[in-house]
């Protein structure tokens, strides 16, 4: 599903954020990216989404070499990738339902599809009651659920999350992780960067540790360390 071959990413010609990384992530895997601040976790994730292009190496996502993908095809690549932000990035003037619907509208989904899928996904993330609330009327955990719903409403095969629990307390984080776990069990590949030791240690999934841009550990059913 995701394959990196000798990938190196250099910012501004000097900062090596990712160094000669080779890794293979199969369909349906759940992968934690860990490592100290500045080790290149966010860069790794942005490379998968083609927000960044590598200086060296090739990246395959969903069977496509995304380095040779024409600019006009990037949006179609991204329709296969859900993205969850640390700070939710909900649109404050739209309700919960509108925020989720927006993700479908802007890729041209017909109205009937939007009307069917939005309530269904909000049901899945446990927010059926809050459908007409605005983001500021929700707790942080609820806002992150909306953001997960928005990322997953189009049922992408891949979900990327950059510290999705970074702004949440431990209790609430557990709820979000249960949700991501459920989504993963439907066959969705999940790659998640995190600093949250207890989450990694309880979930016992594959752990890839980065240090100064290099993979220093790749462990099945691993721990945070």
């Amino acid at each position: 599903m995701i394959k990196l071959n000798n990938v190196t990413k250099v910012y501004k010609g000097t900062v090596v954020a990712v160094r000669d990384v080779t890794v293979d992530i199969a369909k349906g895997e759940f992968v934690f990216l860990v490592g100290p601040s500045g080790s290149g976790k966010s860069t790794f994730i942005r490379l998968l989404n083609r927000e960044e292009l590598p200086e060296h190496g090739t990246i395959y996502v969903a069977g496509k070499d995304i380095g040779t993908l024409g600019t006009w095809r990037v949006p179609f690549l991204r329709r296969n990738i859900g993205f969850i932000f640390q700070d939710f990035k909900l649109l404050p003037k739209k309700t919960v339902a509108e925020n989720v619907a927006f993700a479908l509208e802007v890729i041209g989904k017909p109205r009937q599809v939007v009307r069917k899928q939005v309530p269904a996904i909000l049901e899945l993330v446990g927010l059926a009651e809050k459908i007409d609330n605005f983001p500021h009327e929700l707790s942080g955990g609820e806002q992150q659920r909306v953001s997960v719903a928005r990322a997953f409403v189009n049922r992408p095969p891949i979900l990327l999350a950059d510290e999705p629990t970074g702004n949440l307390d431990p209790q609430t984080s557990v709820g979000i992780m249960k949700l991501l776990d459920r989504i993963n069990r439907t066959g969705t590949t999940v790659v998640m960067a995190t600093h949250d030791r207890s989450i990694v240690d309880t979930m016992r999934r594959r752990v890839i540790e980065l240090d100064r841009g290099e993979i220093v550990r790749d462990q099945a059913r691993g721990v945070y360390e």
Binding site: W72, P75, L77, R78, F102, A103
Partner: peptide
């Protein structure tokens, strides 16, 4: 800016934006 960022991330085409 916020809307545009979301549009890009969910795969809206350039022209759509």
């Amino acid at each position: 800016g916020a809307e545009i960022e979301i549009m890009k991330v969910v795969g809206a085409t350039n022209w759509f934006i």
